[in-house]
Design a protein around this nucleic acid. Structure first.
Length: 947
DNA sequence: GCTCTGCTCAGAGGA
């Protein structure tokens, strides 16, 4: 029987005498939370009787959240009626119990139940595992690093692993290993895998021939070993298996599984007879993961590919680089205790010092880095400190942002936990899974991968899109057979590619920590590697300076011209505030063109792929107009032209920008030249944090839609350049973050407030009729937003070919109208509004407006689909968030609120700003006037619309 | 309570 609970009070540790002598034990007071056992009627709560209805299985998530969000202090008592009891942990589990603090979650497997003074208590048995914060998923590599040195784990997280040859070679050997297991020809595999990493190898200055030879040497050992195995036994193999354990809170990807046991491949040196301890620990992690999926695992294999040549000539007759070893229960429990140390430290927000383990600093490669980081951040560490600590305000900044990023990471972990905490239907309702699939076929591809096809048997929306990496499973993403797969096509049929032939009938969103990791590294780089002058300016110790050019860049718009001058002349940074329709993109393009003319190398970045492609498109148009840019093919040949490169995944980059996309695969020299010769590189900020771009240097980083970026997100781009320019509008949508924390304010907004002189606001808009523009200008831009030209101010639907406002009913002739609809009272949809909107669109169509010229905006996705099902496909119907950045001749806004304006979505007025500034010639607001009047901003909006 | 885009994933190794 397993028990799960929240620690209710301090843990008591004491020594007792038993028949075996003195032993330690820890008594943990807990409030029990339902486990799956309990839900099935066999657990402690069901047995207890009275408590069982107080905790449905779904409650567990809520309790976990409360524990995580409120931290270990547990200042909010769990007032509900969960049973208070004691779990006694014996022997080595005392170490894990000592990590616990009130409020933390605890899972103990295989407990013994006993009665003590009329109360049911639990005790660990010889088969028990104690798991601290089980919903905190720890990576296998994290455990491997931690066992070497806890500080190493921390440093790795903070500064990442830079591009280096041994690592890249190791990765290629692993890929070849996987290919061999899947039956691919060795030479073909080596050639293909080396080719795939062309860009990386180019950056490292390696030639494909030398790398292939190097890989061949390692692969020979693998092949020899495989051959041996095939001759003697009937092996069952599986390569690259992704494993997640809901019990142990561990996840990882095993290199291979052979007859149910893990095989770990190591391409580094190991001259000793025994496997390295950390390698054993890594294999033991996979053993634990496999155990949860079924069988007992008691052996593991470590394959040291560099060892073959050495071992072959030894008298021992050891012909194989493989080292088999047995894994006892003791090792597996040790691994769980390591994992508990990590989870407890992360939940408490502590920083490891290195004293936790017994590693020797003098043998460590990271000793210097460790000492520098300790010195700069003023952290206690076993290696000691070098250098001077950062100023207090920077240390405070580091702590605050570190905590905020880690909170984001917790949210990602919660997404993982939902993989098993939510049932299939819940996940489907949450748009996080497709569960209606019917497996059709699997087809082997030439590269040793598989193409999987499944039919969709029901409709329904989901977050999944083509190009996404997903968990493809034959039933359950954690408990069943699951594999990471790439969505190649998604319509009524789903086409996937994956390493293994899973009989897929369900797809789940795969949560990734990648962006969180990169945020942390970006912050680290800014504070610890960044130049002093930039920090002086950003921390308010120095004023930003400018060397403004006298040149006129844009003749007919003073603010735009000033913006370009500031962007070009910034010594530190410049800010361009661009309200809706003010020609922000044009200004960016003009500024980059001017920078390029001065010989600067420019990084063009933004949070979303869409924004990057939009800005790049505008730049290419300008370059073409001025005869400096040509087709991408020619750019690579001719040094005189401006070379532009778009870095990003094939599915992320918009189709018309694909010709500019930098391929990763190919000849190393060619790929390198393509990147390094590019005078303009365009990529999302997440990609700026990639290993390939991190080594690049730019004179200027220009970041568009900067108000949508967190501070560390902005730094990911800014740290690659000498100066930076941020372009955005903090009166529109803020950064997307999962947790409420210090990441919600963008660097752009902060700098606009602290350094107003470094910025320019573009004040002439080229989009909206004056009547439409009025409200947003008054409400969000101090009345400073004005039409750029009289034609803009006066534009109406009449200007459009074939449209006549006279054909509209009198109430709709004004560019802004309000249509009062009482609504149907439901929460996230409103059929009454949807009906009315469908009629309105028809009325406009009758007056000559084409459906392609209309757009409908609603706050909720549910309402978006309600409306979409009632109007012609040509009408663009979407949420506010997805409409940002585009515009339409006619916009209809559905407010979807009856009675009162409840909900966070209405509280953020920036959304309303976005919605109201999308139309060019006509805006219709549809909603319940009683609800809208209940909020002063919305009430003013009604007054304006109803005029 | 709601909106939501990123990213090949995680792990690859140095003595």
């Amino acid at each position: 029987m397993d028990v799960r609970g929240i620690v209710a009070d301090e843990v008591t540790v004491r020594t007792v005498s038993t028949s075996y002598g003195e032993t330690d034990l820890a008594e943990v007071p807990v409030r029990l939370v339902a486990t799956d056992d309990a839900a099935a009627g066999t657990g402690p709560l069901a047995d207890g009787g009275t408590e069982s209805d107080a905790s449905a299985p779904g409650d567990r998530g809520a309790d976990t959240r409360a524990a995580g969000a409120d931290g270990p202090i547990g200042d909010e008592p769990l007032e509900d009626a969960h049973e208070l009891t004691t779990i006694t942990c014996w022997n080595k589990w005392v170490e894990s119990a000592e990590l616990l603090e009130p409020g933390m979650e605890l899972l103990v497997t295989n407990v013994e139940e006993d009665e003590y003074q009329g109360e049911t208590q639990y005790t660990t048995t010889g088969d028990s595992y104690v798991v601290v914060e089980p919903s905190f998923l720890v990576n296998v590599t994290a455990i491997r690093n931690w066992v070497e040195c806890p500080r190493l784990y921390y440093l790795n997280k903070l500064s990442g692993v830079p591009l280096n040859y041994p690592v890249v070679k190791g990765t290629i050997v692993h890929e070849v290993f996987g290919d061999l297991l899947r039956g691919r020809d060795l030479e073909e595999s080596i050639d293909a895998r080396v080719e795939e990493r062309g860009l990386q190898l180019g950056l490292l200055g390696e030639t494909p021939e030398a790398v292939a030879e190097d890989v061949r040497e390692n692969a020979a050992a693998i092949e020899g070993w495989l051959e041996q195995g095939r001759l003697t036994e009937d092996d069952s193999w599986r390569s690259e298996q992704l494993l997640i354990s809901e019990t142990f809170g561990i996840r990882g990807r095993a290199d291979a599984i052979r007859r149910g046991a893990p095989v770990e491949l190591k391409t580094g040196k190991n001259l000793r007879k025994e496997p390295r301890f950390k390698d054993k620990v890594q294999a033991a992690c996979y053993a634990l993961l496999l155990e949860e999926h079924g069988d007992e695992v008691d052996t593991g294999t470590l394959l040291y590919t560099k060892n073959s040549a050495l071992d072959r000539n030894e008298e021992t007759g050891d012909l194989t680089p493989a080292k088999d070893f047995s894994m006892g229960a003791g090792l597996l429990k040790f691994v769980v205790r390591l994992r508990n140390e990590i989870a407890a430290m992360e939940v408490k927000g502590d920083v490891p010092t290195g004293y936790e383990g017994d590693a020797k600093c003098e043998y460590c490669f990271e000793q210097d880095t460790c000492m520098v980081v300790s010195g700069r951040l003023d952290q206690e560490s076993k290696a000691g400190q070098i250098g001077q600590a950062l100023p207090d305000e920077e240390l405070e900044y580091f702590d605050r942002l570190y905590r905020a990023i880690e909170e984001e990471r917790r949210e990602v972990h919660r997404e993982y936990a939902k993989l098993w905490q939510q049932d299939a239907q819940e996940r489907a309702d949450d748009d996080r899974a497709l569960i209606d699939l019917e497996f059709v076929e699997k087809r082997p591809l030439e590269e040793g991968r598989w193409e999987l096809r499944a039919k969709r048997t029901a409709g329904g929306a989901s977050k999944l899109r083509e190009g996404d990496l997903v968990l493809a499973s034959d039933g359950h993403p954690v408990r069943g057979n699951a594999e990471l797969a790439m969505i190649e096509r998604l319509d009524d049929e789903v086409v996937l590619t994956a390493d293994e032939p899973v009989e897929v009938c369900r797809l789940d969103v795969y949560p990734s920590e990648l962006t969180t990791d990169r945020l942390l590294v970006a912050m680290h780089d800014f504070l610890l590697k960044g130049d002093g002058r930039r920090k002086d300016v950003l921390f308010g110790r120095e004023e930003p300076s400018f060397s403004l050019p006298e040149e006129t860049f844009i003749g007919n718009n003073a603010a735009q011209n000033e913006a370009v001058r500031k962007a070009v002349g910034a010594d530190d940074f410049a800010l361009i505030h661009g309200p809706p329709g003010t020609g922000k993109t044009y200004t960016i393009a003009r500024a980059i063109r001017a920078m390029v003319e001065r010989g600067d190398r420019v990084l063009l970045s933004a949070f979303t792929n869409r924004a990057v492609d939009n800005a790049l498109e505008a730049l290419l148009e300008q370059l073409e107009e001025h005869g400096e840019g040509v087709a991408p093919e020619a750019q690579r040949e001719d040094g005189e032209t401006v070379e532009v490169v778009r870095v990003g995944s094939e599915s992320g980059v918009r189709e018309d920008m694909l010709p500019y996309r930098l391929e990763r695969a190919g000849d190393p020299e060619d790929r390198l030249a393509e990147l390094e010769n590019a005078q303009v590189v365009a990529a999302t900020t997440a990609t700026c944090g990639s290993r390939e771009l991190k080594e690049q240097y730019f004179d200027v980083a220009l970041v568009d839609e900067a108000a949508q970026l967190t501070e560390p997100g902005t730094f990911a781009a800014a740290t690659l350049a000498d100066r930076f320019v941020l372009v955005g509008d903090h009166e529109q949508l803020p950064p997307v973050v999962r947790a409420e924390n210090d990441l919600t304010e963008s660097l752009f907004e902060r700098l606009v407030e602290t350094h107003p002189d470094a910025g320019v606001m573009l004040d002439r808009q080229y989009r909206m009729n004056q009547r439409i523009q009025y409200f947003a200008s008054q409400e969000f831009y101090d009345g400073k937003l004005r039409p750029a030209e009289p034609e803009v101010a006066a534009r109406t639907l009449d200007d459009l070919v074939g449209v006549s406002r006279d054909a509209l009913p009198p109430t709709l002739r004004d560019p802004v109208t309000f249509v009062d609809v009482e609504g149907d009272g439901s929460r996230y949809t409103d059929a009454a509004e949807a009906e009315r909107i469908a009629e309105l669109l028809e009325t406009y169509a009758d007056a000559g407006l084409r459906y392609e010229q209309m757009g409908v905006i609603a706050p909720f996705r549910a309402q978006v689909s309600t409306i979409a099902s009632r109007v012609p496909d040509a009408v663009a119907v979407d949420t506010v968030d997805r409409f940002q950045g585009s515009s339409q001749e006619l916009i209809v806004v559905s407010f979807t609120a009856t009675g009162s304006l409840e909900g966070p979505i209405f509280e953020d007025y920036r959304r309303i700003n976005v919605a109201l500034t999308r139309p060019k010639r006509a805006l219709v607001l549809v909603g319940d006037s009683r609800a809208l009047e209940s909020d002063p901003v919305y009430a003013r909006m009604l007054e304006w619309a109803d005029r």
